[in-house]
Amino acid sequence: MPAFVSIRNLRKSYGTFEALRGIDLEIEKGEVVCVVGPSGSGKSTLIRCINRLESFSKESEIRVDDIAVVPGRTLAKVRAEVGMVFQSFNLFPHLTVRENVMLAPRRVRGTSRADAASQADRLLARVGISEQADKYPEYLSGGQQQRVAIARALAMEPQVMLFDEPTSALDPEMVGEVLDVMRDLAGTGVTMIVVTHEMGFAAQVADRVIFMDGGEVIETGPPGQVLSAPREPRTKNFLSAVLNH
């Protein structure tokens, strides 16, 4: 039985620049993995390869639930299993909050309008923004928008959720409400891969922390080890820089 998300020798270049230099990673079902590392280390690139928002080298292999992540028909299956939350929310501004959550189930799954609406209302209640369902995203705070984005991704009932710095664009006072939703989600058994600079969140919630630098995984292990007692000098440097910023 292979791991739920399996990444072998992942390489990605932009022209001659190697953004990912051969990543190997196995993630089990239900695992919560936090990816940390300095800017430009390839964290975003790594998780964007998992649902193939980025193409990657032919010699590399990524499988999700044993489905190969390759262009073509099977990509739709992969994307149905993988939800994604972006740093900049990327809500659809011409749709209300409820319609944002309903769109993918309606179009991709063919769910009826009524079913999609009641599912959307359930999810919006779960992320704590039922009252805003009929508003347009621009009238919501950043924290509320990000919670809508999480609900929108959950509407496709993904097995894996990818988060790319979900709190980095938020005002400090809104970071907590989004992290709370993510913490709840981690408790439901969804596999999560979270790129974050929130070391407190990683320490509390992650089953495993991955430290990346220069397109490589430098160190990986439980948060107690990687964040508190790192072995690699580069990890130590990064953590002391983050903690004393």
Partner: peptide, 30 residues
């Protein structure tokens, strides 16, 4: 239209055609 709109659509599993019809063109019309 910002690239993030295309990416969010793709991540949700919308096809190219659905992305155009449901996400991009309604915004582009304005």
């Amino acid at each position: 239209i910002p690239g993030g709109q295309f990416e969010a659509s793709a991540a949700l599993g919308l096809s190219h055609r659905q992305t155009m019809v449901d996400v991009i063109l309604p915004q582009a019309v304005k």
